[in-house]
């Protein structure tokens, strides 16, 4: 019988990537979303539903809590030496943060891809 011993490097790497992704996601909300909200309000822009969902702070809170819980679970499992559950938790946290980041990018880019041109001739003179 052959026993395969593997280190926790993979789990740790996934956890680090997840943490970086979560950090960029949170900073995205803190930096980009307020700027986008201000822009939408100032120019009275119409935004798609997906963008509205992404701009909602509740979305961030849900994603952040879920990802942080999964990461905490992975860390705990690593501490007690249960590597397989740790890998699953770390993988799930990576998936959650990656999916949330992808959705954020999609939602932010959606107005730029779908809006129609407004000819300047329709605008009033200043």
């Amino acid at each position: 019988m052959v026993t395969v011993h593997r280190t926790a490097k993979l789990e740790l790497a996934i956890l680090v990537v997840s943490a970086v992704l979560l950090a960029s996601l949170v900073s995205g909300y803190l930096i980009v979303i307020p700027a986008m909200r201000e822009m939408i309000k100032e120019f009275d822009m119409a935004v798609p539903q997906a963008t509205r969902i992404a701009l909602n702070v509740k979305s961030l809170v849900i994603v952040a809590i879920t990802a942080a819980t999964l990461m905490a679970g992975a860390v705990h499992c690593l501490r007690v030496g249960r590597r397989n559950p740790a890998l699953i938790f770390a993988g799930l946290s990576l998936l959650v943060t990656l999916a949330a980041s992808t959705f954020l990018f999609y939602a932010v880019s959606l107005p730029a891809m779908t809006s129609v041109v407004t000819p300047e001739t329709q605008t009033p003179d200043p």
Partner: peptide
């Protein structure tokens, strides 16, 4: 709004998102 796709050189930090404010 600018929306585009292309290529980038890899970075040491796998941050996925790069963000910029005003």
């Amino acid at each position: 709004g600018y929306a585009g796709a292309g290529l980038a050189l890899p970075t040491f930090l796998p941050s996925f998102l790069s963000l910029s404010g005003t």
